[in-house]
Amino acid sequence: MLSFVLSRLGSLALSLVVASLVIFAVVQIIPGDPATFMMGLNATPASVETLRKALGLTGSLPVRYLHWVGGMLSGDLGTSYTYRVPVAGLVLQRLQVSLPLTLFALFLSLALALPAGILAAARRGRGADLTVMGFTQLGIAVPNFWFAMLLALLFALKLHWLPAGGFPGWKAGVLPVLRSLTLPAIALALPQAAILARVMRSSLIDTLGQDFIRTARAKGLSSGQAVRRHAVRNALIPVLTILGLQFSFLLAGGIIIENVFYLPGLGRLIFQGITQRDLIVVQSVVMLLVAAVIVVNFVVEIAYALIDPRLRRQA
């Protein structure tokens, strides 16, 4: 187990390094001089130089890269050009919206998808299965941001049950925050839940066709007991893979959904960064998102090993 974790940690570190190199290359090398790029064409050389110093963009590329990476490791994500404040502070502030939203959506989609998928597989070919499959077919086809708009139209504009957008801040209390995040989280979760439910269903159906289920039935387990005691845990293995991938879709979806509900999260920050050519913000937030995906996938691989004893011994 230890050697498994160590080898995964190694590839985690390698992925992070390569990802950071790619991001650095795109943001700092392709546009030429980032400071000039940020200030636009009619900036004077002197003001560009001032900016460069202010943002710590002096020195050769390797030096700048190491400076950036070293900064990140110590919690310093650079200085925003637009806001002239440390990016780390901005990110921390925005995470208070994005992180709860993502977790809320993840929880919702799991809570919906797993039971639905198990039900559909256990009742394969019958009414419950067809209903679940019909809904998931629709769920996969609906763009989450449009679904979000429809939710806002119905529950906020017509029924006035929930706010149509904005974020009250944690100081306002937990309930207002939850109210403001409910519609975005549902919009984010449902299409993901549809995919997850389908994976759960097909994985469980595959597992139910395996020999060891027949063995279990020959021991005297009813089909329901065989599902609960033997099939579900095995069927979760491929579901975990998809869950890892889903996380990146949740992040990406979050970026878009925040726009629908005017939520001041990381997504909004990054779009402000783009429109204001604030490369430092873009670079740091993108790195953060990518790192989150990589770390989540690492966690998923470790979770595999916990579920499946066959993986524990492999290097």
């Binding site: 395996q210 020999d211 060891f212 027949r214 063995t215 279990a216 039935r217 020959a218 021991k219 005297g220 033997h230 845990r233 095995n234 579920i307 499946d308 004893p309 066959r310």
Partner: peptide
């Protein structure tokens, strides 16, 4: 009855047991 009165074993032992 299954398992109590009648037991059964199958051809392929490699896949007949739950791996987890």
């Amino acid at each position: 009855l299954r398992g109590r009165e009648i037991g059964m074993i199958f051809q392929e032992p490699m896949t007949a047991l739950n791996p987890v």
